[in-house]
Design a protein around this nucleic acid. Structure first.
Length: 622
RNA sequence: CGGGGCGUGGCGCAACGGUGGCGCACGUGCUUUGGGAGCACGAGGUUGUGGGUUCGAAUCCCACCGCCCCGACCA
């Protein structure tokens, strides 16, 4: 173990530290045993200094790192838990590593409780496996690809459905082997176009991913909801207020999905939430249930000159009509080259996820170019489907039921009044493709919804048979027939959860870990030890008692020769649940000053009381 | 990939055409010890890289690399 207090290098400065995958998952199970062995060796050597701050591989920073904005990022760097190596790539220092392991252990316990079997699958995969399911071509540059020395195409794993399905086709023969749940903690690499927010969105990270394997839909349903319940318990234990929201199944395919979301202004997802009834959904899938306006007589179409009105606001202002009396046209091109015109009412925006799903757009959507629009007989800024050629026309349900709208004339500077569907143009499809707005009616109870940002801390997917069919993972049923295995897939990103825990558990002084995930249960501080030897003796005794009680009871011991201010502020920054202060003052008062980091409550407890806590005989020292 | 910002000791910053400094951190010694102590001495920098302009470049110009923020993107 390194004994330098000084990391002493810039990111990327030391080749020896470069490009390491975590390789951490395999250490998970062995951690406790390893620590125990290390402890024994330490005892034998009479050293026991690994948890002494004087030798801990870390450093605290007085100033916030300039590139950190979120509290979790700032504090985890300042307190010496993590260091950045590159964009979206972080090292976990010993303290951060321990927090990750605590989070991992919570997840492990809850997954084992629903019958999960822990295993480990590789980070490097042959590309051919991904070709079999079609994802080698379907997934873009976010998947890292390379060739091995024999010129074989390889990929870095973004996820492990392919490997699980590949194992299933080898191993599972009979319905008697199902159902089954496997999971692992493993490094994923996703070359995101943009990492951000410290540990919130990174490119390399450890994820817990589990996979359920069932005979049929009913089995999948049971496995899915078992995960739902396990996740609820996991996030509760982690100290996170995670709410399950309905979500898009996206590229994963499948029939049902939930994301567990923690509300945070920096979150990348928008959530539609009803505070009245508890309804919650990702905005990508939340249905629009705004009632259609009253029916009107359909008025004749009339062209009107509308100079410089390329935006809905300008148009509505110019004509003196509410935006809800206008039709907004948005132009897209699908990944496989189809041109799409999407019409929503002027007071709404197009929801691209809904649009993609409605038209089953292959390869997603991109905005169309002005020339492409013109080639189809339309005009950006003054567009409508009237006169459109070679275009898929999709109209939002609400827009279709709103009479006499102002729409583009496909001529610069002109619009058409009283456009009506289907009288004036024929859509290829009518679907809900509009974004829910704040204050719109809740799909469940009708009350007004609010919009909030959220960070996705976990997700659950009903995959169905997409991967098992592609790879031929079948079992022989009771009926003597072959059936594809029915899969589900479930993820939790560890680092992101750690960051979210800090987001939820910190104050202006630093981190305040929930006991369940704290790297150590307590932080022992000595003050005035150089002039009062009993201070050191007492602290050493307490530290020894904790160390002797086993790996789970190890505590941090600040044995540094620092001023009281440094030690106490560091203790608050690091955030162990209990700060134990031994000083001439505390000894005179009868023992050890015990501070609850989260609440700030202090009291003086006897050496015996504190020892009972350190040895695990009491739940708290206070 | 678009827009913006920034690269100077470990961290935070200054110097903006004329021999690179400050605070914190670090080392040694002394003093100090319940809220980021004091004094003294000291170590540490090819100013991201490459090219150009200039008598002279951290500073001006070009290119590249890297990082951050907004957007696009995103199981």
């Amino acid at each position: 173990m390194g004994t330098s207090r000084r990391p002493g290098r810039r990111p990327g400065h030391d080749p020896a530290c470069r490009g390491r995958g975590s390789g951490a998952a395999g250490l998970a199970a062995g951690l406790a045993a390893g620590l125990a062995a290390g402890l024994a060796a330490g005892l034998a050597a009479g050293i026991l200094r690994a948890m002494r701050l004087s030798h801990l591989f870390f450093t605290t920073l007085r100033d916030d790192p300039a590139d950190a904005e979120m509290p979790s990022h700032r504090l985890l760097v300042r307190a010496g838990y993590v260091r950045q190596l590159g964009a979206g790539i972080y090292s976990l220092l010993p303290l951060g590593f321990r927090v990750n392991k605590r989070v991992e252990q919570v997840i492990r316990e809850e997954l084992n409780a629903i019958g999960g079997q822990e295993m480990e699958m590789p980070v490097v995969h042959p590309a051919d496996l991904w070709r079999e399911t079609g994802r080698y071509d379907a997934i873009g540059p976010e998947m890292a690809r390379f060739k091995d020395r024999a010129d074989r195409d390889m990929v870095l794993a973004m996820t492990h459905e392919e490997v699980v399905a590949d194992l299933l086709r080898d191993i599972v023969k009979s319905y008697r082997q199902l159902p089954m749940i496997v999971y692992h903690f493993q490094t994923k690499f996703r070359d995101e176009p943009r990492s951000r927010g410290g540990l919130i969105r990174v490119r390399e990270f450890v994820m817990k991913d589990s996979y359920t394997c069932d005979r049929d839909e009913a089995g999948l349903d049971a496995a899915y909801w078992a995960h739902h319940r396990a996740y609820t318990r996991i996030f509760e234990r982690l100290g996170l207020k995670a709410i399950p929201v309905s979500s898009d199944v996206g590229m994963m395919g499948g029939s049902l999905a939930h994301e567990f979301m923690v509300l945070n202004p920096a979150g990348e997802d928008e959530l539609v939430i009803c505070e009245a009834c508890g309804y919650a959904a990702n905005r990508q899938v939340a249905p629009t249930t705004v009632p259609a306006p009253a029916a009107e007589d359909l008025l004749p179409v009339g062209e009107v000159e509308t100079p410089d009105t390329t935006t809905i606001d300008a148009l509505a202002t110019f004509l003196g009509v509410p935006t809800s009396r206008t039709a907004k046209a948005a132009f897209f091109v699908t990944g496989d080259g189809r041109f799409v015109v999407a019409i929503v009412r002027g007071d709404f925006d197009v929801n691209e996820t809904k649009l993609v799903n409605a038209i089953k757009a292959v390869g997603g959507l991109r905005p169309a170019q002005v020339e492409e629009i013109r080639e189809r007989g339309m005009e950006a800024g003054y567009g409508s489907p009237i006169g459109a050629r070679d275009a898929v026309v999709v109209v939002d349900e609400l827009a279709a039921r709103s009479p006499n709208l102002v729409a583009g004339a496909n001529r610069p500077g002109f619009h058409l009044r009283n456009v009506n569907v289907p009288r004036d143009y024929t859509p290829d499809m009518t679907a809900d493709i509009a974004n829910v707005r704040e204050g719109d009616p809740c799909p469940n109870c009708g009350g007004p919804v609010i919009l909030r940002n959220g960070i996705e801390v976990g997700n659950i997917f009903k995959l169905g048979t997409k991967y098992t069919k592609a790879l031929g993972a079948e079992y022989l049923g009771e009926d003597g027939e072959r059936h594809p295995i029915v899969m589900g897939s479930y993820g939790i990103g560890l680092g992101r959860n750690v960051a979210c825990i800090v987001e939820a558990h910190h104050d202006d002084k630093g981190i305040a870990w929930p006991a369940e995930v704290a790297p150590y249960p307590a932080h022992l501080v000595t003050l005035g030890g150089s002039r009062e030897p009993t201070v050191i003796e007492t602290a050493e005794t307490l530290y020894g008692a904790a160390a002797a009680a086993g790996p789970a009871r190890e505590i941090l011991y600040d044995d540094r020769d620092e001023s009281p201010g440094v030690k106490l502020t560091d203790a608050e920054l690091l955030g162990m649940p209990w700060i134990l202060t031994v000083s001439p003052r505390s000894l005179a008062a009868g023992g050890v000053e015990v501070t609850n980091r989260a609440t700030g409550e202090r009291s003086v407890r006897s050496i015996d009381d504190v020892t009972a806590f350190l040895e695990g005989r009491a739940a708290t020292p206070a």
